[in-house]
């Protein structure tokens, strides 16, 4: 039983990272109907940048965090402008492939720039552990969970209470109508990409202490797809819940099931959900109007 709880906690921590990446998918998909297969690579870049700022340049952890967010927000906007905007309205298939291509480019560039060795950063809470009765909770795990919760509150407040957040919601619901209402749709798209890149960066930096930073870190993004699908692909809390479910299922199946199941558990869950409830656990069914 203790094992179970212990594993569940670390599963939740990993799941929060999946959830954050999935959140990035959902933000972009909601607003632009682009599924960004390069979201995992954005996370990877965020982690690499944090290495540069914190380990190489010796910046303070929090300052480095902030610098990464700014850089990645700019990069997100740049990607939107260069790759995504020209293909808005193309068939879904083309868009998926374009973002896959984008991911490949980012991954190879990162490999060329930072090399292929495993890198690590030190955080203020590295190696600390808390004891909660018989349970042992690593500070790194805890930091992920707390930061994710915090980020959620911030995003919720942003979309609920700020002018820009509400405008973004309008764009995501009806682009044309939003445009007629005088909302600068293009700028909203760029902002959405910036926000999404920042969320991915946060995920990357939070994840950095518990795994190594490597150019293949982006493949974790593929695990976030099941999370997003589970959550219905258009729901922000859904993405996080989906991420946590995937994280827990994965960790538990790694612990209790034979070797090999850990890697595919997320996808088995995904296929099962798609078969039973294609709109995801939290999504609503929609009909096309004719």
């Amino acid at each position: 039983m203790l094992d179970f709880v212990q594993q569940t906690i670390s599963g939740v921590a990993v799941g929060c990272v999946y959830g954050l990446i999935a959140l990035g998918f959902v933000l972009i998909y909601k607003a632009t109907e682009v599924v960004n297969f390069a979201q995992g690579e954005l996370m990877m870049l965020g982690a690499f940048l944090s290495y540069t700022f914190i380990a190489t340049l010796g910046l303070n952890y929090w300052l480095g965090f902030l610098a990464c967010l700014v850089c990645m927000a700019l990069l997100g906007m740049l990607m939107e402008r260069l790759v995504v905007r020209p293909i808005l309205g193309y068939p879904q298939f083309s868009i998926v492939m374009a973002t896959i291509g984008l991911g490949m480019v980012l991954r190879s560039l990162a490999g060329m720039f930072w090399g292929t060795d495993d890198l690590r950063i030190e955080t203020p809470f590295s190696k600390a552990v808390y004891h909660l009765g018989p349970l042992v909770i690593a500070a790194d795990d805890l930091s992920i969970i707390v930061a994710t919760a915090l980020l959620c509150v911030i995003l919720y407040a942003f979309f609920r209470f700020t002018r820009m957040g509400v405008a973004m919601q309008a764009v995501s619901q009806n682009m044309l109508a939003a445009y007629y209402m005088g909302i600068p749709v293009k700028r909203m798209f760029a902002s959405i990409w910036a926000i999404s890149a920042m969320v991915a960066t946060a995920a990357g930096i939070l994840l950095a202490p518990i795994t190594f930073i490597h150019s293949n870190l982006g493949f974790l993004g593929l695990k976030a797809f099941p999370a997003a699908v589970l959550g219905g692909f258009t729901s922000i809390p859904g993405a996080l819940v989906g991420g946590v479910i995937i994280g827990v299922v994965e960790t538990l199946s790694g612990f209790y099931l034979p070797e090999g199941f850990k890697d595919i558990a997320a996808y088995v869950v995904l296929l099962a959900v798609l078969l039973v409830r294609p709109q995801g656990l939290l999504g609503g069914a929609m009909l096309k109007k004719v």
Binding site: A98, I100, G101, M104, S108, L109, G111, M112, S215
Partner: peptide, 25 residues
């Protein structure tokens, strides 16, 4: 050195995909 880095092929593939989708659908 740059051209013999392991990621070159994937970089070129990525650029090709993006190029064709945007400019020659």
């Amino acid at each position: 050195v740059l051209l013999s880095a392991p990621g070159v092929k994937s970089l070129i593939f990525g650029l090709i995909i993006i190029f064709f989708i945007i400019h020659e659908p």
